[in-house]
Each structure stands twice: as C-alpha cells, then as structure tokens.
Amino acid sequence: MPRDYKKEYREYHSKPEQRRNRSLRVLARRKMAKELGEDTIEGKDIDHKRPLSRGGTNARSNLRVLSVAKNRGRK
C-alpha cells in the first residue's frame, strides 16, 4: 500500500506543536549556517542535545553539528 502523504500531513504534520518544532529545526539550521558557514554543515544534521519534545531550545549551547548517521542512529 502506498504512503498517504496528505493524510500524514492532515493528521500529524499540520498540528500546531509539530509546525512549531519544524520551524525551530529550520531556525536552528539557519543559525548554525550563519555561525559556522554553509560549507561546514552541508550534508550534516544539526542536533538538539536536549530534544525539542523535552523542552529543548535553539540556544547555541543546546545545538551541535553531527553526521547524519551519528545523529539519526542515537537514541
């Protein structure tokens, strides 16, 4: 069965909390790109040491640059 992206957006991604979190992730990436340069973060993830779901913020002390494999492999 193919994935129903419209249903996913309607039921999950459009919720106010999820839109806020997505916005914070985008802003975190922009902040790090401005500080470190686009070339430095290209192909990498910006990690929130304390996740947004547990009260994390976009403070510089809460952000770090990790490889995609390392960031998405940690729990």
Rank of each mutant, 00 (worst) to 15 (best):
D47R: 03
E17V: 07
K34P: 00
R19V: 15
E42L: 07
M32V: 12
M1W: 03
R22N: 10
Y5V: 08
H48T: 03
K44N: 11
R19E: 09
Y12W: 09
D47A: 07
R3V: 07
Y9D: 01
A28I: 07
R20I: 06
L36V: 06
H48C: 01
R3M: 01
K6W: 03
R19M: 12
Y12Q: 13
D4T: 05
R3F: 08
A28T: 06
E38T: 08
A33N: 14
D39I: 00
Q18I: 06
K15Q: 14
L52K: 04
S23E: 09
R50L: 12
S23M: 08
R25Y: 06
Y9P: 00
A33K: 12
L52Y: 03
H48W: 00
R29Q: 12
P51S: 02
S23R: 14
K7T: 13
R10M: 03
R25W: 05
E35D: 08
A33Y: 02
Y5C: 02
R25T: 09
K6L: 08
E35C: 02
K44P: 00
S23D: 11
E35T: 11
K15T: 15
R25I: 10
A33H: 05
R20H: 12
V26E: 15
R19F: 02
H48K: 00
S14N: 14
R50T: 12
I46E: 06
N21R: 15
K7I: 07
M32K: 08
E11W: 06
E8C: 06
R22T: 09
